[in-house]
Design a protein around this nucleic acid. Structure first.
Lengths: 211, 211
DNA sequence: CGATGTGAAGCGTTTCACAGCA
DNA sequence: TGCTGTGAAACGCTTCACATCG
């Protein structure tokens, strides 16, 4: 059973994890693929197919045990231990990220933050003292950091990405408004609200004409 | 030429727009699909195919005129006029969004913001006085608002989404950590950093075993 | 002659439909 | 009997390869 698992399937797993948690909170102990599908906004067939890439989790004729499926999803996603994370860029957005309460319970611990602005270096945000970005590479190597969050202006982003990759970071959550270039073995995801809004307006403008 | 345009193509258009702008800033006046492809991280064939859904933009044997392609992309995406936007939720994240400088130059004007917290209502952020969320529906109707940004906790998000849709909003940028349910004709995009990190760790955990 | 625009082939994902199992 | 797990069919997207045209 060493089939290649499609990327799209991996992208949906966190959605399933959230759905299972939500159903558990509602007191369910057994759910079927239809209920899970509604909660995660996919068809029942797709949910079953997706899970089947990782093994057999359900009881035929019954459904899935919420408790075990939750544990299995957490294990599959590698979330059964906490991941240390660093933040680069502590401007307005970086500040919001440092005080964002949802990373830690979900398995991510922002343990250090860096900036290039002398006015910001040395200040404290959420119990973290901001370090100079010049010390970033060494910190990554010494602490074996694998995940970085990048919240800097577009102009400096690609250089910092190169630097992160060279230091050994393998996963980057990029908030800079650029199309980043990284080697194939690096995981990168760009969060870009402007991009999201701009593809919406295509449909909004289009429908306006048709009505 | 009334082919159905795939969603994935629409999602890539803002990327092309950014690539063209970037090449224009570098002084280019004529680009070919290879250069544009590198800048937007797609294959030249895909770029040409994607553009072909909207007409013919290039000169055979030459490439694309930067100036006209830029104008065409802006027109296609419906960004040739500014879109009024409202923000719901002015907590840590909402504050960062209100002070985020990139929406306005890209065609979006956050013209009003709402919250349910009496301590926040009436305060001013970026020249905007925060209004009570109870006045949101009326505001949307009176000002014909079509786009809303939602930055509230997960618990209240779905109710607010329903309320936005009922008031006439057709596009929602959702920052709440939920899987939202909306009618088919509504455009919604969810921005979820935790989700992005959680699908990364699958690959990071997997590769760790293999090495 | 060189790069676009595009049918057609190739490939990957989703959906179907049912065998198999609790 | 009911729902999972899954081959196979259907569908949609990407890539190819070349006719076309400036």
């Amino acid at each position: 059973m060493v089939r290649e698992i499609p990327d799209v399937v991996i992208q949906r797993l966190p959605q399933y994890l959230r759905a299972v948690r939500s159903l558990k909170d509602k007191g369910a102990s057994l759910v079927n693929s239809k209920e899970l599908g509604i909660e995660s906004d996919v068809t029942p067939a797709q949910l079953r197919k997706d899970l089947s890439y990782f093994g057999k989790f359900g009881k035929q004729g019954n459904g899935y045990r919420v408790e075990t499926l939750l544990k299995d999803l957490i294990r599959i996603l590698g979330l059964d231990h906490s991941w240390p994370v660093i933040l680069i860029g502590v401007g307005r957005l970086g500040n919001a990220i440092l005080t964002y309460p949802d990373f830690t319970p979900e398995g991510f611990h922002v343990q250090s933050a860096f900036d290039s602005d002398p006015k910001i270096i040395g200040t404290e945000v959420s119990n973290i003292t901001i370090k100079p970005v010049s010390s970033m590479e060494q910190y990554i190597i010494e602490n074996k950091i694998e995940i970085a969050i990048l919240a800097v202006p577009g102009e400096s982003a690609q250089d910092l990405i190169d630097s992160l990759v060279e230091s050994g970071v393998r996963g980057i959550l990029n908030y800079a408004p650029i199309t980043p270039k990284v080697p194939n073995h690096i995981q990168i995801q760009t969060i870009d609200p402007v991009h999201a809004l701009q593809s919406m307006t295509f449909y909004l403008a289009e429908n306006r004409i048709h009505q």
